[in-house]
Design a binder for these strands. Structure first.
Length: 500
RNA sequence: GGGCCCAUAGCUCAGCUAGGUAGAGCAUCUGGCUUUUAACCAGAGGGUCAGGGGUUCGAACCCCCUUGGGCCCGCCA
């Protein structure tokens, strides 16, 4: 049974799937797992005929933790302020929206369409007010829950609400001194003191309390989250207890998902953690493949993502599945996976990505590639073809291993050949010089004849030719390859090698 | 120290939430093909399912232990 199905099959009644990421920087591949897992669960519920909604919480009330490496030093003054109150790095709008917007764009192309809720707006609109009041009234009970379950000792002056300083704007530097009438009095390290209205965005709950409060306010019934929250004594454990004991709300069904690791490219994630930004991935991968990577494996298993050769294998795999589907040979699980991998657009007839990675290195115009494919009897919708061509280009220049790349050698680049091989090149040179038509078939014909004349094994002959032209043992189909390059360029090269 | 995930053919993995005599793709080998985009077609070899114990008529699949990898427990998923 498909993992998504088995997870939700026993659920009764209306469901609400919740996910959330704090928009504190560029959203990357790892974050994608959270939201895509949520989307997969949501869509699995629908496929199973259950009523469900799907929300994405942008935690823009979270404070800036520190000056991240990608931020200018001037952001030091903003550390501790809510993300929504900080100016964007480009000066336009808020910090949180700056990182949220491109992420939303990425989600759109991935066909993920949750209801987006900004936590800051929940505070602003007073949605948290009542529950904050409860939290403060029952702070001693909450304190003991946090201490006993997490095993962590809280400071004596601990208070379950962080007021935002009206002067310096920080929410991590105030100390509560009093509470009454929905107002928290505070002193700030900046010297200011004042009152914070719990029905406004003038402060926030600490994470471990805010999380269960969100469940209650938004009626969340199922939520995927990373194992950092899922560890024993972690925030899910304390959240569950707080939800059930204090808020009288049944904690959502948890789905603790494993992490995504990057493969290849050496120590790509040794120090900084995994971080291919979401946009970067979508620049070389069709959204269907990203979805496929997340959908095919149970969320509880880790995924090793290989953007290099492994990516092509994943493409192949997906294309095979699509083919099976068109022949109605998919198993039930495969049907689920395929359905959940689709990104809300027709992607039945896929341009062969692997093939494109080669074509893209030979031809530079999209029209040319379209023609070639047409000659091969394959036609695709122009939009998807254009996109995929761009992606293949990007993949070649950024992720392709050297063995998959090639470029024409210069006229006088040195090359190491045996005597026999050099004779072969001379022969080919003469034939190509005299060739009446510079077309693929004829060119290929010349190569075969030349190789035949010297009793070389075909593979050895071709290897010599490729070595001369691109410095590799293998290359794209010779006739097509040479036909798009001006003849003089080829003959000059061959002539020089022959004369050496 | 605590927790989670993983360990199945040379490689990448499926199968493990319906327990019933081991699967796919790639690689290798053989044959074919007017020979090469990581070509294509047909076929073959290859695994005591990490190790040990238990439950069962029967376990890769359930339970326990061991070993080896990976990851998480200072709110970066």
């Amino acid at each position: 049974m498909y993992w998504g199905e088995s997870l939700i099959k026993d659920l009764k009644g209306k469901q609400k799937v919740s996910t959330g990421i704090s928009p504190s920087g560029p959203i990357h591949l790892g974050n994608l797992r959270e939201i895509l897992t949520g989307d997969i669960i949501y869509k699995s519920l629908l496929m199973d005929g259950k009523e469900s909604t799907f929300i994405y919480l942008a935690d823009d009330m979270d404070p800036l933790r520190k000056v991240y490496p990608f931020l200018p030093e001037s952001y030091t003054e903003h550390v501790g302020k809510p993300l929504r109150d900080i100016p964007a790095p480009d000066g336009k709008g808020s910090y949180s929206e700056f990182y949220l917007n491109p992420f939303m764009e990425a989600l759109k192309s991935l066909d993920v369409k949750p209801e987006v809720i900004r936590t800051g707006e929940l505070y602003r609109d007073g949605k948290f007010g009542e529950i904050i009041n409860t939290v403060i009234e029952k702070k001693d009970e909450i304190r003991s829950i946090l201490e006993s379950i997490s095993g962590r000792e809280l400071e004596p002056q601990w208070f379950p609400y962080n007021a935002r300083c009206s002067k310096c704007g920080r929410i991590n530097s105030t100390t509560a001194t009093d509470y009454g009438d929905g107002k928290v009095s505070y002193n700030c390290k900046c010297g200011n003191s004042g009152e914070s209205d719990i029905y406004r965005e003038e402060g926030k709950l600490p994470w471990r309390i805010e999380w269960p409060a969100k469940w209650k306010i938004l009626n969340v019934t199922i939520e995927p989250f990373g194992k950092d929250h899922g560890t024993v004594g972690g925030s899910y454990d304390t959240g569950k207890e707080i939800a059930e004991k204090i808020f009288n709300y049944k904690a959502p069904l948890p789905l603790i998902y494993e992490r995504i690791l990057l493969k290849g490219k050496g120590a790509m994630h040794s120090s900084t953690g995994v971080n291919i930004p979401a946009q970067e991935i979508l620049s070389f991968s069709p959204p269907e493949i990203i979805r496929y990577v997340m959908a095919r494996v149970p969320a509880t298993r880790h995924v090793e993502f290989d953007p290099a050769l492994g990516f092509l294998s994943t493409m192949d795999e997906f294309e095979r599945l699509l083919k099976m589907e068109s022949e109605k040979k998919t198993s039930e699980d495969q049907h689920w996976i395929l359905t959940l991998s689709k990104a809300g657009r027709a992607y039945d007839s896929v341009p062969d990505y692997r093939h494109l990675t080669t074509l893209v290195q030979i031809y530079n115009s999209e029209e040319r590639i379209r023609e070639i494919l047409k000659n091969e009897g394959k036609e695709y919708s122009s939009e998807i073809l254009r996109e995929t061509i761009e992606m293949a280009k990007k993949w070649v220049q950024t992720y392709a291993p050297d063995s998959s790349k090639f470029s024409l050698k210069g006229e006088k680049d040195p090359v190491d050949l045996s005597v026999e091989e050099r004779k072969l090149i001379c022969s080919l040179y003469e034939k190509l010089e005299k060739l009446d038509q510079w077309v693929p078939e004829k060119i290929h014909e010349c190569a075969r004849e030349s190789i035949g004349r010297f009793n070389l094994a075909p593979a050895d002959g071709f290897r010599a030719i490729y070595r001369v032209l691109i410095g590799n043992d293998k290359g794209p189909r010779l006739g097509f390859f040479l036909s798009v390059i001006p003849r003089e360029k080829i003959t000059k090269r061959l002539g020089w090698v022959c004369g050496e």
